[in-house]
Each structure stands twice: as C-alpha cells, then as structure tokens.
Design a protein around this nucleic acid. Sequence first.
DNA 1: TGTCCAATGTTGGCCATTCCAACATAGGCG
DNA 2: CGCCTATGTTGGAATGGCCAACATTGGACA
Lengths: 150, 150
Amino acid sequence: MPAHPVRPGRTPDRLKDRPTWLISRAFARSSALLAAGFEADGDGLRGYHYRLLAALEQWGPASQADLGRDTGIDRSDVTAALTELESRGLVERRVDPDHRRRKIVTITPQGGDALVGLDAVIDRTQAAVLAPLTAAQRRQFVDLMAKLLD
Amino acid sequence: MPAHPVRPGRTPDRLKDRPTWLISRAFARSSALLAAGFEADGDGLRGYHYRLLAALEQWGPASQADLGRDTGIDRSDVTAALTELESRGLVERRVDPDHRRRKIVTITPQGGDALVGLDAVIDRTQAAVLAPLTAAQRRQFVDLMAKLLD
DNA sequence: TGTCCAATGTTGGCCATTCCAACATAGGCG
DNA sequence: CGCCTATGTTGGAATGGCCAACATTGGACA
C-alpha cells in the first residue's frame, strides 16, 4: 500500500520542517512498506501478532495481562489477537493452575517458525525505510529516535 | 502512545531498535500530542484542516486535487475536510469557469485567522514532541527525517 | 473468618488516520 | 467524433488505539 503521493517541492512552509509533519510522513511511508510486506509474506498476520510472538519468544510463557503490558497492547486487543494466533496453532492458552482467573500463553514451535518468517519481512522493510540514509546516518537516526521516546 | 501502561524496559528486543517500530511510536506520541492540542484549542479542527489551510494560505486558490497532492491527503478526505472548513466559513469552493469539473478553493479572512490560531497549537506541540532532545539534536533530527523522506 | 477490593479475560463498542473502489461528469487529444 | 484521463464524491475498509462493563477469582486485611 503505497503512501499517498506528495508533490515534490510543494509542501507548505508551515509544514515542511515541522517534526510532527515529518514524523507523520515517515510513518505513512513506513507503515505502507510494512503493510505491503505483511500482505506479501505475512500469512494474514499483523503488527499485534508480531509483537505478541516476539514477547513470548523472548521471555517465555506469560499471562495475557502481562503480555499487554509488555507490548503496549490493550487487554481486549490481546485477547482478540491471541485468538487468531491460537487458531493458527502459533500459541497455546491454558488456565494457570495456581491462579485460575489467569491464562498462561505459550508460543508453539510453529509460532517460533512464524516469528522467524516475519523477521524476514520486517528486516526487508527496515532496509527499504532506511534506504535514503548512509550507515552512519542510520545509527544516528535510531539513536535520536530512541532519545525522542524516552 | 502507548499512553497505555507499558512496563518500562520490557520492550522485546525484536522491536526496540527497529526503525519501523521507533517511527510508529514517535507517530503515536506525536499524533496524541497533536490531538490533545487540537482538542484544547483547535475549535474542532484537526491535522487535515491545518494542512489544507496552510497550503491555501501559501499558494492561493487551488483545485481540490492539487490540494490533495500538496498536502498528502487523499482526494476523498480532502472533500470531507473541505466540507467542514466550508461550513465554518474558513474556505470557499466554487466551480472553475474554465474547467467545470474542477472546484477552486479559496481561503477566507476567517480561514486565515483560524490558521494563525492553529499555528500556536502546532508550535506548542512541536516543543512537546522534541522536549527530550537538545537544540543540536533537534536540528539533526529534522535533517535526518528530511533525508529519509527524499 | 468474612468482606471488600483488585486483577483477569472477554465482549462489544468507539474514534482517528489512511487508503481504496466505484461512479458520474467534464475535458483533452487523437 | 470516440477514447482516455482527471475530478469530485460517496461509501467502505484496515489498522491501531482506547474505554466501559461484566463475571470470575483471589488477595488483603479488618
């Protein structure tokens, strides 16, 4: 899904150097590239699924509430995304025997494979997004963005 | 955003340094701050309205299609936003006598006033977005983002 | 011990941003 | 003249983010 075309050199002065504008354009491009990648090779999965699988792979089984806190996804959206992941056999949910109101989510081997597959999609997208920058500029960019989000 | 509770230091490694992730977080924060600013002082107007008014103020009357290209807004969304602006008396639309399928949009004096008012909202938002950065880093940031969008 | 409070998962909804499909109409260009 | 493109419009979709309400469960603590 290509970002909506902007006529080169015709961005209003009021917008063109403003961080909020630059960020929104960067996001438009980045998410368009990401969507194209997921569409081509994502097997119907989206950002929420990737986030959840990444958290599970890194830290192991977790409750849904903890997953939400770790990934910045609302509890209700966690539920929906996990249902989709579960129906694909990428995660398993079972009630915590010690706290029966809680469900422990585990990533399956297939879930691990899917995650690796998505990594490739994601990595290709990073390369496309950063294409205009040199290696040094890329490092600077990541560094500044991290600071911005402190 | 996640203005939603995110456990600090618990972002999965697969996400935390990826440009697409950083960009989406930055966009979330930026647009949340922008929305808050518009809510407080924007008189019901939003980003699209500001972009359109800015383009009109700078280059004078234009067709809706040209406005879309200049501001990165889809034609259909231009139509909707202009309808709102028109109902507030901030722009005028009339059929181009030379090309009757086209509508020429003109900003009104009230539209100019509204634009100046929104400038203040926007400026405050830039400051909030860039708050974590030093002056030198802010220049670097704008510079890198501009390169990224080449 | 019993009562109240907080956390959990779920359902169902809302909003904003962006983009797309389809359409009628109007002009340009051959 | 006929074709093709541009234009404005309507309506819808995907994605991400958020919130309220609910039943259930367990912990805290009086």
